[in-house]
């Protein structure tokens, strides 16, 4: 287990190193500098600013400085907000993103599990059809369309929730709903397939032969066996939430990293883009690691093969 963990962490570090390197050199090819947005400056002022950003050194030196910074969680200074450290910018915006992202994930996965298992247990009935239609709709309608519709109808028309801004819990409801749609639909689809599979397996047949009733079969055998593989889609769902948050945060003016990412992209704020790229990758790697470990802890088959290795 310790060996496995060590190996995984090594690969995460390798991945982050590669990602940092690629983003660094990509950004070096970019047009635009911190000066793009500023009016005419004297050569000495330009030199001053270049020095401030470390742009006067040769590229390989800049690269080493950047890497050393990344190791210490220092991603340089933002071009857009010239006196803010990127790491501070990201840190201050992390909270709202984690809140709506986490809520969206939890709400989506839980409702998806319910919807998916209902569909499987009542396969080929109207309940199944409804569950399928709901998940197809939610997986197909783009998050930005859904967000605008939620904002207009539940916010502006019905006035149930604030249309934008950031404050207490009530401000998180609409963004959470918009973000929950994708994990809800994906989980429901996955769960339904998984459970239909399990319900037609030999061990469910044996459970029936034991005389276990329908409820007992679902509760004691089918649910656990179909729930375990759900862990494997948490990683991809996290990616969906990250993607969705970029527009959802924008539409609802949530001061999170998703909104910041889009803003930085539109203003060519390279240090922030680079920092956020690395942070996104790091978060995803951690989620993937946790889900893998969780899967190993929960599934007895993997748990044991892990021990014997």
């Amino acid at each position: 287990m310790v060996k496995y963990l060590g190996k995984r962490i090594f690969y995460i570090i390798l991945t982050l190193f590669i990602v940092s390197t690629i983003t660094f050199f990509l950004m070096k090819f970019m047009p635009g500098t911190p000066l793009t947005n500023q009016a005419k400056l004297t050569p000495s002022q330009i030199h001053q600013i270049y020095k401030q950003y470390g742009l006067d050194k040769p590229v390989w030196q800049q690269y080493l400085v950047y890497l050393a910074g990344v190791v210490h969680g220092n991603f340089g200074v933002s071009f857009q907000f010239s006196n803010q450290a990127v790491s501070y910018l990201i840190g201050s915006r992390m909270g709202p993103s984690l809140i709506i992202g986490g809520q969206g994930m939890i709400v989506g996965v839980l409702l998806g599990l319910v919807l998916g298992s209902l569909g499987a247990v009542k396969a080929n009935t109207w309940i199944d059809t409804t569950s399928t239609i709901v998940s197809i709709l939610l997986v197909s309608i783009p998050s930005f369309v859904l967000a605008v519709l939620l904002q207009y109808y539940l916010g502006l028309k019905l006035r149930w929730f604030p249309i934008a801004d950031w404050g207490g819990f009530i401000y998180t409801v609409l963004p959470t709903m918009a973000l929950a749609a994708s994990p809800l639909a994906e989980t429901a689809r996955f769960m339904r397939t998984e459970m239909v599979d399990v319900l037609s397996s030999d061990y469910i047949e044996l459970a029936k032969a034991k005389g276990l009733g329908k409820v007992g079969i679902i509760y004691h055998h089918a649910l656990r066996n179909s729930l375990i593989p759900i862990i494997t889609i948490i990683g991809p769902l996290t990616v969906n939430i990250m993607t969705g948050s970029m527009v959802v945060e924008n539409i609802f003016s949530v001061p999170g990293i998703g909104e910041q990412f889009v803003k930085s992209v539109l203003t060519n704020d390279y240090p922030t883009i680079m920092g956020l790229t690395i942070v996104y990758c790091a978060m995803l790697c951690v989620v993937l690691l946790i889900t893998d470990i969780l899967y190993g802890l929960i599934d007895p088959r993997i748990r044991l093969s892990g021990q014997s290795n």
């Binding site: 397996s201 030999d202 061990y203 044996l206 032969a209 005389g211 009733g213 656990r224 066996n225 007895p300």
Partner: peptide, 28 residues
């Protein structure tokens, strides 16, 4: 009925299936 059969299955009449590799619940 299905309920009545549930009471007989595994009690008065039991069955062994073909493939032991798949007929046990892997997580129990």
């Amino acid at each position: 009925s299905r309920k009545q059969m549930d009471a007989i299955r595994g009690n008065n009449i039991a069955e062994i299936f073909q493939d032991p590799m798949t007929s046990l619940d892997p997580t129990m």
